[in-house]
Amino acid sequence: MEQHNTATPHVLPLSLYFTVAGTLFVLTGITVAVSFVHFGEFNIIVAMLIATVKASLVALYFMHLKYDNKLFMAVFLSSLIFLGLFLTLTMTDTMHRGDIDPIKEHPIKKEAIIYDK
């Protein structure tokens, strides 16, 4: 019985697909346009924000995540959360290496070769 539920196809109007596709093109245009403006440190944040919106649109509409079983949404989001967790906790290391012991920040000279091949 439950299998019946999940197998029901969800048909979306073609216009919606074109709207989403159009939005994606517009956002691509904005990404290019924005690259000519310098926000300094915020460059990466702006670019990532636009990219996140685009990826969300693809996942939600093209990949039907919005209309599918909510479990899939949970699985999808949890994978993102775990990636975020990995990056955040690793950055507590990489962003703070020089806090107390300045030698830790650049432990090895750039030219140093530790791989004797």
């Binding site: 906790l89 507590t92 290391d93 962003m95 290496r97 020089g98 806090d99 107390i100 830790k104």
Partner: peptide, 11 residues
């Protein structure tokens, strides 16, 4: 390992 002191504290 040489990870930051802050990171060690958090972990």
């Amino acid at each position: 390992s040489g990870q930051s002191e802050f990171s060690s504290m958090v972990f």
